[in-house]
Amino acid sequence: MKKVLSLSLSMILAASVALAGCGNDNSGSNSQGSDGNEGAAKSDVQIGMVTDVGGVNDKSFNQSAWEALQAVEAESGAKVKYLQSKSDSDYNTNLNEFVQNNYNLTWGIGFQLADAIKTVAEQNPESNLAIIDSVVDAPNVKSVTFAEEQGSFLVGVIAGKMTKTNKVGFVGGMNSPLIKRFEVGFREGVKAVNPDAKFIPTYTGNFDKPDEGKTAAATLYNDGVDIIFHAAGATGTGVFNEGLSRKKSGQDVWVIGVDKDQSIEFGDEITLTSMIKKVDEAVKKVSLELVNGTFEGGIEELDLADNAVGIAETSTANVPEDVLKLVDEYKEKIISGEIVVPTE
């Protein structure tokens, strides 16, 4: 069952009152938390977060998740901390560090942590865990997934209407079912409004290699592509860097960001639009459920109808009004079920 991404003001206020007066210890190596704002309610609740290899400063979903936990800390006084994974072998170790230190909730950010989350959850049935972008079938795990293909379809509509070379590209990180949903949704959006456009996808195989993203983007731009959508985590930084370099040399090229409004980081000069996936709101919602004592394991599936995916509000900077109107029309068709966006 889908749940609305919202938390009532009364629940937040109730949590603040209930937690007032408790202590908050924010010590520990790698802790990126703060003591919170003066006067904020304090809590003994501890929430940990393990990044995938893209790192906490990936300008994408890891960063969004961490920003959400910082907001939870500010609102509730809960102690928050992250551990950054440098390789797949760090996942179990990092998750276990939080669990063995009796953290009340441990997040795994990204589908690559699914196996580790399942193992740790089964070994520690009294511990609460949560994961973004994958489903882990365990009673003590909250799994949050998104309809990436729906949001990607909408930015595909923008690319299909705005390409001048009639060539549109996609740069993915790891070629997985999750990233494939971004690719396929984007492709279908382009096709819906511009069936003659050539669509060129490519994968780097990594989420933490900006240089590989730059090389992939250069290849696409050299092939005549003028708009690239990336779903590659920190590797996507290289896509933006290549686009910016070409833009400054006079080439009319664009990049479409992913997961959060990447124009904030890279500027409107190169960011045509961004496909928003509200990882931050999902992480904040579930974490506050833990703070309030209402956390439950299970699956939470979020889509356009939940306003959990879509396009950045700053799209008005570069996308004409008539194209944005067309995007809204397709959005309503997807929500109503008139259009079912494929995932493969």
Rank of each mutant, 00 (worst) to 15 (best):
K2S: 15
L5H: 06
L5D: 13
S8Q: 04
L19E: 14
G23L: 12
N26K: 11
S29R: 12
N30Y: 12
G33F: 02
A41T: 13
D44T: 13
Q46H: 13
A71Y: 12
V72K: 04
S76G: 10
K79P: 05
N94F: 11
E97V: 11
Y103L: 04
N104G: 15
G110T: 02
L113P: 03
E122C: 10
E126P: 07
I132G: 10
D137G: 13
K142P: 06
V144T: 14
S152M: 08
G156K: 08
A159R: 11
K164D: 11
V168R: 04
G169I: 01
N175C: 06
F182M: 12
E183W: 02
V190N: 00
A192T: 08
V193H: 00
K198V: 15
F199W: 15
P201N: 03
K209I: 09
T219W: 02
Y221N: 08
G224T: 03
A232G: 05
G233R: 05
T235C: 10
G236N: 01
F240C: 07
E242L: 01
L244W: 10
R246I: 04
K247G: 06
G257K: 02
G257C: 09
E265P: 05
E281Y: 03
E281G: 05
A282Y: 05
V283N: 04
V286D: 01
L290C: 10
E300W: 08
E301C: 12
E301H: 15
E301R: 12
T314P: 01
E321S: 08
E332W: 05
I334R: 02
V341A: 01
T343D: 07
